[in-house]
Amino acid sequence: MKEKKFKYDDALIELKQILQDIQSDQTGIDQLSSQIARSKELINLCKTRLREIESSINPDE
């Protein structure tokens, strides 16, 4: 919610793509740094969203 129109599923797809690229050596060294930055951002957003969902699932915890 913090980012405009942040969608978990879209973020996940992007993250998986980055992961796949990095694992299969498709990422060029030039893109590596930006990819890592992007993936960190995505992971943080996703985790935040999950924690929000988690706390809404367990309202009294």
Binding site: I18, L19, I22, C46, L50
Partner: peptide, 11 residues
Amino acid sequence: MAFLEYAEKTL
């Protein structure tokens, strides 16, 4: 969450 952890670690 597990996937994110894995992705984080891998990345």
